[in-house]
Design a binder for these strands. Sequence first.
RNA 1: UGGGGCGUAGCCAAGUGGUAAGGCACGGGACUUUGGAUCCUGCAUUCGUUGGUUCGAAUCCAACCGCCCCAGCCA
Length: 561
Amino acid sequence: MVSLAAEGYNPANFIQDIINEDKQTGRHDGRVHTRFPPEPNGYLHIGHAKSICLNFGSAAFNGGLCNLRFDDTNPTKEEDEYVEAIKADVRWLGFDWDDRLFHASDYFDQLYEWAIKLIDKGKAYVDDLSPDEIREQRGTLTEPGKESPYRNRSVEENLDLFRRMKAGEFPDGARVLRAKIDMASGNINLRDPVLYRILHAEHHRAGSKWCIYPMYDYAHPLSDAIEGITHSICTLEFEDHRPLYNWLTEQVEVPDRPQQIEFARLNLTNTLTSKRGLRRLVQEGYVGGWDDPRMPTLSGVRRRGYPPEAIRSFCGEVGVAKTNSLVSFAQLEHSVREFLNRTAPRMMAVLRPLKVTLTNYPEGQTEEFEVENNPEDPAAGTRPVPFSRTLYIEQEDFMEEPPPKYFRLAPGREVRLKGTYFIKCQEVVKDPATGQVVELRCTYDPETRGGEAPDGRKVKATIHWVSAAHAGDATVRLYDNLFLTENPAEGGDFIANLNPKSLETLTGCKVEPGVAGAAPGSRYQFLRHGYFCIDPDSTPETLVFNRTATLRDTWAKVSGK
RNA sequence: UGGGGCGUAGCCAAGUGGUAAGGCACGGGACUUUGGAUCCUGCAUUCGUUGGUUCGAAUCCAACCGCCCCAGCCA
C-alpha cells in the first residue's frame, strides 16, 4: 500500500540507492527519518516542492518519517508570517508532519551546552577579531588563511568569554565563537568557521532570551542529530559543508550520526526560483504579492489553479540527480494538464463575445441540453445548458475570409454548436462606422438536434457558445510567463527580462450559468480554451477566472500564430 | 593557481562490464460533437574528448576539455 505522501515519489534516484544500502547494512538501525528544513524568511516556491516531495516522499516510501523543521537561527530575517504560510503550503501540497513540527530555536539550550563541550575539548574558541579582520585572515581560494591571535586562548578564558557573550556583555559583532579546525584547509568552510555570533535581536519565538545565535553550519547537523534524522537531504551548494557537518556530529559524540546527501535544486525555464529575487518582485511591486498567479511560489501556483497532485507527479517525473539542470516549463504544464484533463469539469465560456442570432429559431423559446461534464470521465455526469435564439460565440471562431484549413464559421459555412445543432452563417452585420463584425445572422437546422445530421452530412468544426440571456458575466485573467528569457537570473538584472505582457485581463466575458456560485479555487476546463480557476477576487456579480494553462492548440501551429 | 561536484537526444533522466529505459518537446498517421483528449508511429550505431584494459566499455583505468559551487558574524 503506497501512502499519499509516497504517491508520485520516483524511487529511481541515487538517494534511494543509498537508503537501500543503509537498510541492508542495518545503518541507523534500518530507520529512515528525513526532514524538510525551511528558513521562515520568505514563501515556498516550486523549487521547494521538489525538496518537500523528496523528503516526505522518500520517508513515506521507506516506511519512515519526515519532520517539518523551521531553521530559525537568524532572528533578523525571520518572521511568523512566513512560518504560517509555509505550514499551509506544505499541507496543501499533501504532506503531513503529524506532531513533528520543530524549530531549530527549540534546541538553543542544547546547542549552547554542546558549544561549551566543544570549548572544553579545546575544539572551539572565542575570537575578538572584527568581521573585516576575520575575512582578511580567511585567505583566498588559493592561499591558506592565517590563524587568529586569539586562537590559543585557554579553555577557562574561552568559557568565561562565551558565557559573557551569552550574558549580553558585548555588542553585536564584538566577538564570535569559532571552531578550531584548520586555517590552511583547501575547503574554506573548515578554516575555523564561525559557530555563534552576537545579535541583540528579538527572536520570533525565543523573544529576548538570547543575544547569541548559532550559525546554520553549527545548528543544522546538531538539530538533525537531536531529531534522530538519518538522511539529511540538501542542495548541491552545501556539498562543501559536509566535512564540517560530519566534524560537528563527531565532536559532540551523538550516538547515531545523520548523513548529509546533496542533490541538484530545481530550475525551471522562464522562472525565477530564488527567495531573494521573488521578495524583490513583491516588494518593488512588479507583481501583486507572493500569491500573484504569475509567481512560482506555491501560494501563487495554487491561486493560478495548479493542483497539488500535478506538482507531485511533476516532481517525480523530473527525477533527482546531481547534475545542474534547467527543466522546461512545458514539463510542468504537461503534469498540470494531465491531471486537469482527467478531473476538471468542462464548461463553455466565451472570452471575446460575438453575437449570433438564429433567425429561424422561435423568439422567446428556450431549450435545455444535457452536456457531458467530462468526456474523460463518464461518472462526472452531465449538466443542463440553456439554449436560445440569441447566443454568443468566440470572435475568433468566425472569419469573413477564411484561410485554407480554417474550419470554423464563415459566410455560408455550417458548423456544429457543441451539444446542440448545426448552424449556418447567412449574413454578416457590421458596424457601418468601423467595419467591425458585430453580429452574425444564422439559421439552425432543427433536424440536427443533438449534433448529428440525419442525412449524414458532416461538419468540420464544433464550436462552443453561450446563451446571451442566460450567461453570467466574468473577468478572465490570461497569464503568460513572467520572464521572457529562459534563465532570468543569468547575467545582469532579472528585472530587465520581465515580460510586459505576462497578464492580460479580459472583461465582459460570458460564461455558462452553471458556474454561478462556485467557490474560489474551483477548477474548470473552458472548452477549447484551457483550464481556469476561480479567483478569490470574484464577486457575486462577476466571477474572476485565472487561466491555469491553455489547451494544446494545433490550429495556432497550423496558422502560424 | 586551492577545495568540492557534474558532463547520456532540444529539455529532464534510467543505466553500476554483455551490446542505450522512460517522460517532455518535436514530426507523421488514425480517431474525434473540444483543431482538446486518446491511439499508433518516428526520433542517440552512441554516452564531453582522446587513449588504454577487456572477447565485450556509457559503465574500469589514464590524460585532457567544458560547466557549476565555495573566500557572510546568510541559509
